[in-house]
Simulated assay, not measured.
Amino acid sequence: MKKRLLILGFALMMMASATACGSQSSTDKDGGNAKTESTAASTDKKSQKFPEFKAKTVTGEDISSDVFKDNKLTVVNVWGSWCGPCVAEIPELQKLYENMKDKGVNVIGLAQDAGTDMDAVKDILEKNKVTYQNVVPEGAVTDFVMSIQAFPSTFLVDSEGNIVDKIQGGRDLESFTKAVEDALNKM
């Protein structure tokens, strides 16, 4: 049983790293890599909702989907400790959080492997001096995370829990800031 779980976990990690971790989206005309995909537009003009959830953060605090109500926009970054591009963009997300928190923008990490490798997740967060909340997926959020085909994936969620934009692949501060500002201007 333990061997089967280990093989399944390894297979999932290999699939995820082969399909997304090292891939980048095409670049925009200015040479940046801030291309985003409008999730709302791809769902027949019907907004896709982020799954409602009640969970714990990596530090043991209670958190729920009510967190979206507290801000104009929440940047939800789905990452894994095993994914190089995921880990590389964490300092950029920390800077985004520091720069935008007074403008009604929050950042939340969704640590895909926090339930299985909490030590690795905590180590990465500590090394990068992360102060934004990171959630341990459970319930509907686990199903949502498992449906993602590219890591990292970042979702821009409005105060009503609607996913207003999606970014696949690693980004830098400038790209994240542009995506957030574009989303805020459309609201």
Rank of each mutant, 00 (worst) to 15 (best):
K3Q: 15
K3R: 12
L5Y: 07
G9M: 13
L12T: 11
M14R: 10
M15K: 08
S17K: 11
S17D: 07
T19S: 14
S23Y: 13
T27M: 13
D28Q: 09
N33T: 08
K35D: 08
E37T: 13
T39P: 00
D44F: 15
K45M: 14
K46S: 03
S47N: 12
S47Y: 12
Q48A: 15
P51W: 03
A55C: 01
A55G: 06
V58I: 13
D62R: 11
D62A: 09
I63W: 11
I63A: 14
I63F: 09
S64G: 14
S64Q: 10
V75Q: 01
V75H: 04
V78P: 00
W82I: 05
P85G: 05
C86D: 08
E89N: 07
P91H: 10
L96E: 00
G104M: 00
V107G: 03
A111W: 06
Q112A: 15
A114F: 05
A114Y: 08
D117C: 05
K122R: 12
D123F: 09
I124H: 06
I124N: 04
T131I: 06
Q133G: 03
N134L: 07
V135A: 11
E138Q: 15
E138F: 07
A140Y: 00
T142E: 01
F144K: 02
V145F: 02
I148M: 02
S153K: 02
D158Y: 03
E160T: 13
E160W: 04
E160F: 02
N162P: 04
V164D: 03
K166M: 13
K166W: 07
I167S: 08
F176Q: 05
E181T: 15
E181W: 04
E181H: 08
D182W: 00
